[in-house]
Amino acid sequence: MTAVISGRAWVFGDNVNTDVMAPGLYFKSPMSAMAKHCMEAVNPDFASQVQPGDIVVGGKNFGIGSAREQAAMALQYLGVGAVLAPSFGRIFYRNTLNFGIPALRLPADMIIEAGDQLHVEPETGRIRNESRGTACAAPALPPHLLQMVTAGGLMPYLKARLAKENRDGR
């Protein structure tokens, strides 16, 4: 993870659920096929046009719904650099961080429109909207989550933990 993530904003509404991000109809397909349908029901252009580093900006309760990790994996597969929303569905929030994508709580008064050029600093929570010349500070991630996201997610974190336990002779 880089210190500053820069990309265009893709803006979604309130209560976008994980079924929309990873439709059950494609559950048996590989991620390369499933990701094409990510957000299809609410923005059919998203999956084909999102660029690596682009930033997903959700409304309230972003990612409500099922535990399906494919929702976060689809965003990871599409190269999404960060996810910002005023509040998150609880499992999606954790899944996103577990796949190494910073998820930050967006202050309610920060205006971001589709296509705005954003710069996000996960370590400090600082968010800058270059297109509007505005900035804000999201609550920083708790240290244990920042450490995991910086490591690239839960798998790299687990690898490091197991390696340390082996070194320590456990």
């Binding site: 535990a67 499992i91 839960l154 798998m155």
Partner: peptide
Amino acid sequence: GFGAIEMTGVAVTGEIWIQ
């Protein structure tokens, strides 16, 4: 409930973080 990635962590360590 948690996602499978997090359940992997549980399967390996028997632990999980909760706020």
